Amino acid sequence: MSGRPPVAVTGGAGFIGSHVTTALVAAGHPVLVVDDLSTGRAANLAGVRDEVELLEADVADPGLSRQLRAFGATVVCHLAAAIDVRASVADPVTDAQRNVVGTVAVLQAAVDAGVGKVVFASSGGSVYGSATPPPVPETAPLAPESPYAASKAAAELWFATFRRLHGLRWTALALANVYGPRQDPAGEAGVISLFADRLLAGEPTTIYGDGSQTRDFVHAADVAAAFRVACGPVGDDRRINIGTGVETTVRELHTVLAGLCGAPDQPRTAPARAGELHRSALDAGLARQLLGWAPAIGLADGLAGTVDWIRSTTPARLAGAGQAAAAARGPLRP
Rank of each mutant, 00 (worst) to 15 (best):
R98E: 13
V106L: 13
D61H: 02
V106W: 11
V33E: 03
V119D: 03
V89R: 10
S123K: 02
D84Q: 15
P133I: 11
L107T: 09
P62Q: 01
G40P: 00
P133R: 08
P30S: 09
S65W: 09
A73F: 03
A73W: 08
L79Y: 12
T139F: 03
P133Q: 09
G125C: 13
P30R: 06
A113V: 01
G17T: 08
F71E: 00
S130H: 12
V127Y: 05
V25H: 11
G17W: 00
E56T: 15
T132N: 02
T132R: 05
H78F: 06
D50P: 05
V118M: 01
A43K: 09
T132C: 02
A60G: 15
A23G: 09
G102C: 07
S18E: 04
N44Q: 03
G116L: 07
G28F: 08
S88K: 12
V111G: 02
V75E: 06
S65V: 05
V76P: 10
A46V: 06
I83D: 06
L37P: 00
L45K: 02
V52K: 01
A121I: 08
P92G: 12
A140C: 05
A82L: 13
H19L: 13
T103V: 11
S130Y: 12
A87P: 11
A42G: 09
V106H: 10
V85T: 04
L45Q: 08
A80S: 02
P30N: 07
A81I: 04
V118F: 08
V52Q: 00
R49P: 13
V100K: 02
V100S: 05
L54G: 06
D84M: 12
G102K: 03
L79Q: 08
V75A: 15
G72T: 06
D50T: 10
N99Y: 10
D58H: 08
T21Y: 08
K117M: 04
A42R: 15
A109I: 08
S130W: 07
S130K: 05
A26H: 14
I83Q: 13
A23D: 12
L68V: 02
L68I: 03
V106S: 12
A26I: 14
D50I: 06
R86L: 14
V104E: 14
L68T: 00
H19N: 10
L54Q: 05
D35P: 00
R49L: 15
A105H: 05
I83H: 07
G17A: 07
D61Q: 02
A27Q: 12
V34L: 11
A121L: 03
A27T: 06
A46I: 05
S122T: 05
H78T: 02
V34S: 00
G28H: 10
V101I: 15
A57L: 09
V20D: 05
A43T: 15
G40R: 00
G114S: 05
V106Q: 10
F15S: 01
N99D: 13
A140V: 10
